[in-house]
Amino acid sequence: MSQISPVAEDSAALAAEEIDVKPAEAAAADSAADGTSAAASAADDHDKHPSDWQYVKIAIILGVLTAVEVFTYFESVHRLGDAALFALLTVLMVLKFVYVAAWFMHLKFDSVLFKRIFMTGIALALGVYLIMLTAFSFWT
């Protein structure tokens, strides 16, 4: 999303042609009518964008989570037992996943439509492949 909004330029260009345009509102009204309701963010998400410092903070969190993950590799932690290790690593993995998707990929700030598309892909993948592995008696 550029700071110099292309929409603003276009409006200016069209105003010169004496045509009354309200693109953002029109788009928002339109999508509100049909349940995709994706738009709202398009026009005003410049304000909500995180600062560089926030990105760095997220990266630090990710680094720490990775460090904890790697730490489990060393013997002392193995006393926890395999089940606990699986659980811990899965939680850490999901956390990292969510942080990158929400902040670096802007899902937290962007149109909800993107989140839905991505979640549908993830949910379908999890669903079908976990069932497939289950059918193979993978977990026992």
Binding site: A26, D30, A33, D34, G35
Partner: peptide
């Protein structure tokens, strides 16, 4: 979609 053409 053209104006007013909601999904429904």
């Amino acid at each position: 979609r053209t104006k007013g053409m909601s999904l429904w």
